[in-house]
Design a protein around this nucleic acid. Sequence first.
DNA 1: TCAATAGTGTCTATTAGACAGTATACC
DNA 2: GGTATACTGTCTAATAGACACTATTGA
Lengths: 301, 301
Amino acid sequence: MPNEPVTDLNGLTEEQFLKTYNAGSYERPSVTVDMLIFTVMEQEQDNYRKLPAKSLQLLLIQRGGHPFLGQWALPGGFVAVDESIEDAARRELFSETNIDNIYMEQLYTWGDVQRDPRMRVISCSYMALVDRKTLDVQAGDDAAAAAWFEVSHRMVETSRSEQEQGIRQETLVEITLQNELTKLSGVVKLTETVHGPVRRVHREIVQSDGFAFDHLLMVQYAIERLRGKAEYTDIVFNLMPPLFTLSELQRVYEIILGKDLLPAAFRRKIADRVVETEESTRDAGHRPSKLYRYNLGWDLT
Amino acid sequence: MPNEPVTDLNGLTEEQFLKTYNAGSYERPSVTVDMLIFTVMEQEQDNYRKLPAKSLQLLLIQRGGHPFLGQWALPGGFVAVDESIEDAARRELFSETNIDNIYMEQLYTWGDVQRDPRMRVISCSYMALVDRKTLDVQAGDDAAAAAWFEVSHRMVETSRSEQEQGIRQETLVEITLQNELTKLSGVVKLTETVHGPVRRVHREIVQSDGFAFDHLLMVQYAIERLRGKAEYTDIVFNLMPPLFTLSELQRVYEIILGKDLLPAAFRRKIADRVVETEESTRDAGHRPSKLYRYNLGWDLT
DNA sequence: TCAATAGTGTCTATTAGACAGTATACC
DNA sequence: GGTATACTGTCTAATAGACACTATTGA
């Protein structure tokens, strides 16, 4: 006994409605994805004894056309109408790295009206984390002017003012991206207003040298998120190779958190996220170190 | 001494390029915002001594046309081409609540191809938190079929399987929204896969009774985020009136976190986020309670 | 007086921070 | 042997959990 189908004010059933539906021709924004692909690289060491220094790296692409010709931008592209946003992001990610199964998460959707001088473009940003060793197997590849840049950032100034309605705090964050050939830098102003319990953060580019679009904001946001998540998730392990020493792991945490950690406390804390293997490092100018791997599902029931 | 302007392969400067730029006429998705507006309400109490019970509430709107005619959906609307996403969200928020300066944060952007049966629609979801007392001043207003629903959710089943490549864990979350007139319920399946350190979460509606579109997923996601943020931010204070007792505050935390807290420990923890006032409650059938207000900028330098 | 909530003191368990001290390969 | 890193033991400080206890109002 079939139900009577629901009809709307025009007496149409849902099926009839959809058949005759006309999407209209009003103006729509374009939608893109922008990828923040991070990895950790080791620098060469002169002293055979010392461990190689590590640094956080970000993949950028040099623009070959207007606007922002010659400047550096995040890899990305348009989302097709018959493709989900996540699929578009994975497509871009794969085309840059040639690897599958990379950690990726949606970060934020940037929707200011004037963020692209050509037309209205809304951009959904994704952060991806890759282990450099896996990446080495097959990298470089196509993407003409893609390059890795060492990421560094620091707070250069903070000012605070109390107003009738609340508090306003401004922080300037200087972000530098550099490699052997190029050095890019810019400053993002974070304005935090507290009005009652309502906190609002506003980001603004106050100085930018070589960055296309609003991508500097995305970089700042991504670093902030990476830092935050490093403290309460296992996100950092996505930057590690399958086998690693606890010192290496600690270095990566230190780079991301921007502070030194005490070995004893660090080891205690990550003890159950990690499994010791039989293998160890060799040929270092010092005591060898046990290699560990990530403990799959340590936190699941 | 002006720099030589950069020209592209066609010999155009950026200015010339933008003047002649043609956005093309390929198909674009529509972009909407969907608002998750939460508040906390008090139920009437029969026993004059007892404190009124509180519950988390979400604002929904009953659809007056196809598709999903008669079902309930999150308030929302299209983002105009000359309006930022955030402006669109604030516009929607204001049109539902008639108040300004409400806490609002971007949650997630939903981009599956088939999420709207009419056409390709990408939706950016925002969560807003309002104190019910402020809201009472002027609410109800226009929005024909808007109504508050009590939100409850519980895990109904968890299963776990180990595969060659990693671990897969499925959790069913039952979400119920109800008020005096209507009871909606649905089940969301969360699939968490761990493959190496790469964790991925997939959400899927497995049963839905009265919810339009994929809005049940948004509700589940928002609850998860609210819970998470309650633990490490002051987000909860956005649900409180300007003056509140510590017991009231504790109840709201308990509702959101889904567990009971010990008064002594709770008071210690929030002690410096809060300022005692001269006022206290009266006419309760028991010892009166000091009223507190949020301590603006307690964490800023 | 008593029901119901408000609020405090204190013991214990757990976790984080600090730092000294031992261990070990390789040139 | 000396250098640079690997790793552990233990004291202390800070924080969270548990729970008993006292305080205060209005019907």
